[in-house]
Structure formats: C-alpha cells, structure tokens
Design a protein around this nucleic acid. Sequence first.
DNA 1: GCCTCGTATGACTATTCGGTCATATCAGTA
DNA 2: TACTGATATGACCGAATAGTCATACGAGGC
Lengths: 217, 217
Amino acid sequence: MPKATYFNLKESKRIAIEEAATREFGTYGFYGARLNRIVARAGIAKGSFYQYFDHLEDLYFHLSELYVNQKLALIYEVLSKHDEADFFTKYRLICKASVSFTKSVSDDVLLMSEQMGPDHHRDADPRDRFRRRKEEELFKPLIAKAIDQGEINSDADLAFVVVTNITSMIQQYLSRPGSVYGVGDLLRKPHELEHAIDVFINFLKSGLAGQFKDMEH
Amino acid sequence: MPKATYFNLKESKRIAIEEAATREFGTYGFYGARLNRIVARAGIAKGSFYQYFDHLEDLYFHLSELYVNQKLALIYEVLSKHDEADFFTKYRLICKASVSFTKSVSDDVLLMSEQMGPDHHRDADPRDRFRRRKEEELFKPLIAKAIDQGEINSDADLAFVVVTNITSMIQQYLSRPGSVYGVGDLLRKPHELEHAIDVFINFLKSGLAGQFKDMEH
DNA sequence: GCCTCGTATGACTATTCGGTCATATCAGTA
DNA sequence: TACTGATATGACCGAATAGTCATACGAGGC
C-alpha cells in the first residue's frame, strides 16, 4: 500500500509515476521490473520513491487494484441499467465493457493486466487474491440466479471457473492490438468486435456441438 | 540451443542442471531466474555453464521443448490406440494423458509450465511459438475431422481457441496440488480426476445451458 | 526575517548480476 | 611418459541493483 505521502502528491506527479510503472511492468513483467528505470522515466529521484512506497511491489499492487476497480466500476454501471436481463445478455454487456475499458486505456495497462491472468493467482500472496475476490463478487450471484432460473444447467463451481477463464480468453483475443492469432475469419467481419463476442458467448451457452448461429447486427 | 558440449555430458550432470533450472524457473519465473542460483544448486561452476549454453534463455527453451515433447509423445502414444474414436473421446484421452504426465513429473515442471500458459505466447519471440505449433499439429486435424463428421458445429478457429485454452484450464485446475480453489464439489467425488475431466468435457460439448449429465464410472 | 515540517534529492554503500579468462584437470592416445 | 584436445574451475570484472541518508528545498505560519 502507498504511504500517505503519495496521496498528497499533486496529480500530475502521481500520474507520471503510474504511467512509468505500468509501462515497466507491462514490458518486463513483475519480476523483470526495475526501480531504476521507473524513477528515471517518471522523472523523480530514487529517494523520493521511498517516500511514497515501501517496496516496488506495493506500487504493483496499487496499480493492479486501480485498474481492476476502474474496470469494475464501468461494468457495474452498465449492469445497473439492465437489471432485468438474462444471464447471457448480462455477460455480453460485461464483455463489451471489459473490452472497451481495455481499449480506452494504454496498451501498457493491457500488457500489465496480462501478467495477472487467471494462470497467475498464486495461492502464495494474499494481495494477489484481490482480483479473484472481485471476480467472485461479480459473477457468483449472477451465476446463482441463472441456475435458479434454468438459464444455466451446470454445476455452479464449473460455471464460475469457465466463465472467468473465458472472460479473460475473450479479453486476450479481442483486446490485444494485432493479435488475431489464428482466429481467422472470426474477426474479419463487419462489426467484428460485436460479432466475435457473440461467437464466444454462443459457445459458452451451447458448447462446440451445439448449433453454431451466426448472429447479425 | 545447447552447445554440443552439453550433450557429451554424462547424464547425471545434465539431470542435475535441468532439475536446478526447472526449479528456478518454476519458483522465480522467466525473468526472475538467476544464473548464480542455478549453478549453485546444480553444483557446477559458473564458467562451466557457458561451456554448455550461450545464454540462460537457451536453457529455458531447451527445457520447454523437452517437457512439451515428452508430454506429446505420451499423448500420441495413447491416441494411436484409439484411431477410430470420436472427437470428444479422443479429447478425453488427451486430457487424461496430459494430467497424468504432469503428475508424473515434479511440481517444478508444472510450475514452470504455468509460466508458458496460453496467456504468454507473445508474438515477439519466435522460439515461444514452438508450443503453439505443436498444439496446432495436434488439434487442428482432429477438429477438422470432427467438423467434417458433424461432431462439432462451430467455426474451426473458435474450436481451436477454446479447445487449447480449456485444455490448459483443465491442466491448471486438476494438476496443481492443493489447488481446489473454488472448484468445490467438482473434485470431492469418487474417481475425482475422471469425473472432473468429464465435467469439463461435457461443458466443452454442450455449454453451460446444455444438459449437465453427471457421468459415473 | 526565521522557524517548522513535509517533501525532494542524488551521492553513496553493499550486494548481486551476467559474463570472461587464464589456469587446472582429466581422458585418451601414441 | 608425454602430448593433445575436451572439459572444469572460480577469481575477477564492470555494470546494475535496491535501499539509505545527510542535506536541501519550499510553502505556511508567526
């Protein structure tokens, strides 16, 4: 957690630090990030950094929380307008909001977020569970209600696991610039984003053997 | 790639090096791995290391290839005995082989493999595409045939993306020791491994809305 | 003016890093 | 035995690292 000093800083300086760090973590990963490079790019003295944080990791988790919270705020705002919708409609809104959040921020944020994909929530570090806790708060009630109403006929645990993983799959395939990556015709269509999300959701609903319906908008 | 010298080494030394490096990469990740620790644990001089490899990364990619090839050999062996089976049966065999391979090797191998999950195939490094190329060789023909025979009704690209991602999902949730991690009742059943794989495959086939059938063995 | 307290600084330290290299060891072989 | 070529070694190097600390700055109050 940042020290109190950090929040007294004027915004432009905080932003400079956060941008520099986000780029560093995005480029070199959690373990490859170097404090020297961050302070150089942010234009602050190394001694100053230690006025704001105890360790470099504190800044990492601060950023991690920051971006997760920003994204979730967007998601909850959208959801609040569609309280009555069914599960897959809501899920579609969540995906759209996620992707458009990712597109609205810099590529560095995206790269950094990739380092925090579902593969990475090590049990070790309790701070790493933050994202997962938020995911549970978001999806578990939705899934429970969907099962209750017969929209989902699977085990709730399974549904949670696959929904969260597929969400990050969608993010990964749709947000990264230039990452078509084997997803051939899937993305080369009009309204490609909408279309691609529908393709994934259709799979989520009906599986590979289910009817493949090419929705149009 | 290792130098010729490396392959002249007696096996016990090679194994010592590979074990030490696997543990290092598994513990600290690609970027956090330190040559000093590896040579210390392997019991060789640092100078010796540079007789075998040009860089530490060479060792990483050597290990990566090694384990991928070992796993694939197991998978192809199993598949060769079930040439006539349908797609989902074959896929089930692949999952079982994958998981049992992972369980047969040390936890370090598993941890190291997690660093190479689908989130990570950066376009940047061509050596990183090795695993993906192998995945394509394995799955693309299977999927093409399955579509041809009407077992899969989805787009081939979509099928490839979800099959590979779900495979690593299964690996992740079923191989890691003590990683029940929210997958509550899913694993607390008799023949839990077989059961859990079936649950995932059933989802892959029929989706969340499809009938959830609890198979027994 | 000057006192105070929160902030800023970068030179400095001790440590670790990857990588080198002159030298030593060892296994054949003649 | 003496020579040879492959392998082994760890002291050593320059660069980079995280973290410290004495000092300086700057705004507000008096």
